[in-house]
Nucleic acid binder design. Sequence first.
DNA 1: TGTAAGAGAAAAATCGATTATTGCGGCTAG
DNA 2: CTAGCCGCAATAATCGATTTTTCTCTTACA
Lengths: 228, 228
Amino acid sequence: MGIPRRKEQLTASSRIYDILRQDLVNGRFAAGEKVAISALKERYEVGLSPLREALNRLAAYGLLIQENQRGFRVPSLERGELDDIAEMRRELEGMALERAIRFGDAEWESELLAAAHRLKRADMAPEKVDEWEQLHARFHRTLVAPCGSVWLLRFIEQLHDQFDRYRRMAPEAQEVRRVLDAQHGELVQLALERDIKAARVLMDDHIQRSYEVALRGVTVEVSPSRPG
Amino acid sequence: MGIPRRKEQLTASSRIYDILRQDLVNGRFAAGEKVAISALKERYEVGLSPLREALNRLAAYGLLIQENQRGFRVPSLERGELDDIAEMRRELEGMALERAIRFGDAEWESELLAAAHRLKRADMAPEKVDEWEQLHARFHRTLVAPCGSVWLLRFIEQLHDQFDRYRRMAPEAQEVRRVLDAQHGELVQLALERDIKAARVLMDDHIQRSYEVALRGVTVEVSPSRPG
DNA sequence: TGTAAGAGAAAAATCGATTATTGCGGCTAG
DNA sequence: CTAGCCGCAATAATCGATTTTTCTCTTACA
């Protein structure tokens, strides 16, 4: 099955880009930290050129901050920025969901059910959290996929990556997590019923609750010893 | 006046990035064309490393398409994509304008009047068109600047660059141009009056008319000899 | 006449070394 | 003391050369 296309030969740049993007989103770099290029070079066993190309891409994407003549930094976590990201997620994902429900066909319904099922079944044990995150991201992508705008999808993806940096820094919130997981199922339900209005309301609530979880990662950051 | 900040020392990468971005937006590369890296190297008198870093950034930004192991291409101009870009501009700039009118202060009003005036006074002679484009972009930026969301502004900027690629490819449309220019003044008027609803309607119309101009650049592309 | 294989050229990607800039310490003049 | 300046070490940026992959053209064979 599938087109017998030539095997997609990845470059070192693209490989390291994917890895770094994951690691940044998953909070494996301290927020605000300076990126030591030569350290990364060893840590990921890659040459300078592909590494720098990957860093340049990540900066253009918004997961790193580039300062001329002084390299790259991991963006710090700011409450104001999280507010902005969450607000934009509400706006754009709401818009996309509405369109997806309007345009999505039977094939979409199947994929949506499948994605939701896989996510529900997935193990959330600490060592399998990366896998769960993949399925979670995929579910949300599937939900809005048939919205008809590649640019809208692109922006949403970008915002998701930004948002997840905050969420993954925050402490676990089991009670809220249960509610959020249940909402995934409800979103599918409303999508299949083509209830645009209710779906938007639920999506808003879903993002709002996620936001409140993510927020705990920011406010906790304030050190009690330093008044800054 | 201004903070006595250290002089921002540009890197070769950043310099070439700015230049290429301009040239891409202004249509100085044929749509769909393959980017010959070594040709650019000579054309812009820059080394391979900074050039490649700039190209990587541009691809992440969406002004180039990167294909592993076979370099970079200039995106082709597709009607469907222009539709998407224009639609998103309407949505996002409408949203941003509404917020800007709500949050903008007196300082904003001054800057807006100034930007509109500079644009109106600007010469549109063919050899000064780059300057006019700068002022035009700046006017639209100023209009939505106080919307309160850096991400929204970022997306709008990106869409503007995409949109302008199409618009600058299209043949001149003097009559429509006059209407569009007049609308700039009317937008300022409505912004100062804080008439959110009317401003959004006008912005929608403004983008729609610009879209229709830009569209002429796409449909003309179709060769009469080939029926595809 | 069509298809596949392969050599050689062209282009992309990467490496290793070099150059330029910044950041930090100590030193000195006021 | 403290502000400012020098020089050194660390780091970022860039260069030139090399390796790897793709592209193109030719030839062989069915």
